[in-house]
Design a protein around this nucleic acid. Sequence first.
DNA 1: AATTATAGAGAACGAGCGGTCACCTGTCAA
DNA 2: TTGACAGGTGACCGCTCGTTCTCTATAATT
Lengths: 208, 208
Amino acid sequence: MAKDTKERILAVALDLFSQNGYAGTNIRELTASLGLVKSSLYKHFESKEEIWNSLLDEMIAYYGARFGSPEHLPPVPDSLEGLVAMTMQMADFTIHDERVVKTRKLLTIEQFRDERARALATKHFLTGLKDMFTPIFAGMMDKGLLRRDDPAMLAFVYTAPISALIHLCDREPEKTNEAMAQIEAFSRHFVKVYGVTDDQKKSGGNRP
Amino acid sequence: MAKDTKERILAVALDLFSQNGYAGTNIRELTASLGLVKSSLYKHFESKEEIWNSLLDEMIAYYGARFGSPEHLPPVPDSLEGLVAMTMQMADFTIHDERVVKTRKLLTIEQFRDERARALATKHFLTGLKDMFTPIFAGMMDKGLLRRDDPAMLAFVYTAPISALIHLCDREPEKTNEAMAQIEAFSRHFVKVYGVTDDQKKSGGNRP
DNA sequence: AATTATAGAGAACGAGCGGTCACCTGTCAA
DNA sequence: TTGACAGGTGACCGCTCGTTCTCTATAATT
């Protein structure tokens, strides 16, 4: 236990800040849960605020590496059922991955106090998912799996309800199973409404 | 300026708590913006926490009175265009009414720290709107304005994206106009997808 | 072997926190 | 006229906050 103390501090900071907020967390508590005494923290960070800024740097970098670049786009599903499966897989990850959950909670809490948190929150909660699904839906339309429509609108229509249920899981984790079931039900509803059935395909064209 | 001091304290508390959070707000600042000195506050509340609890009481009561009771349900629109109009009217109110905005921000910030805030947040952000629109959509199906489908699912599909855009306005108020335009575009998309056109009506039945 | 950098510990700092208290003043009922 | 009371004030309290200081043990560098 030596060199990685800085990272361990950031991990605990994410944990506590995401539960009690920046103002609601004190460094005695933070260092204590690392088995340190508060003054030791200042060997690694020069202030509480620097911890916050480093945490945000890390979250921004992580988001960029994980979701921000086009090469990390998931493949276009080959079937409507494939869309449902992919959705459930992504939802399962994002709801259960502790780091991602804590990041969302932290952004939720601090979005009105910090400009960078505000911007990252909009990416996490709105534009990120939409921008990810827009090319996917465009591809599915090209494959004749979805009715021709504005892919960006469909992506918004698809991701916003899922995002709302993810928020519900963050807020009330005991409802996770219920929420996952709702996500699947919603996904199937979407597929029913916007998907092109084999019958429609055979009768030619997918523009009504 | 005498008897209403208690209410003025609560108003300022809502203002400051919704911006800086409960932990990030101190009573000197709170009382100063009322032209009082901090000790005066304790003539009206016995602690900072009691302010918080009173504020929550008020928010819960307000929500129950304004949105919670069935008699406050908006009327079932007579046309698809009526649904769009009603939606825009409600969105305009909820985005611009200061009290409602601050209430949402406060619940957003404090939902992970307080049980009652958590429960009220779920109502505000998820179930409230859905429960309001479920009977409306059921009524519109009865009138032959909407395709027959699960009204609760449609209500969820309709309100979640709108709710996401309302959150965007809370977070980045400078995007309000853009968000309102997106709400209208989404509402018209919804009507296009789920609405029953006159042609469909004439050819009898609305079950595909 | 001597030196130096590192990462802790522990005591202490001043500032700010929520909260208390004695006191003052205007209002109004008895 | 008086006295109780509601509402506001300023001094003060103990505590906790973020931060700094000095000191020490360890381990790498010279």
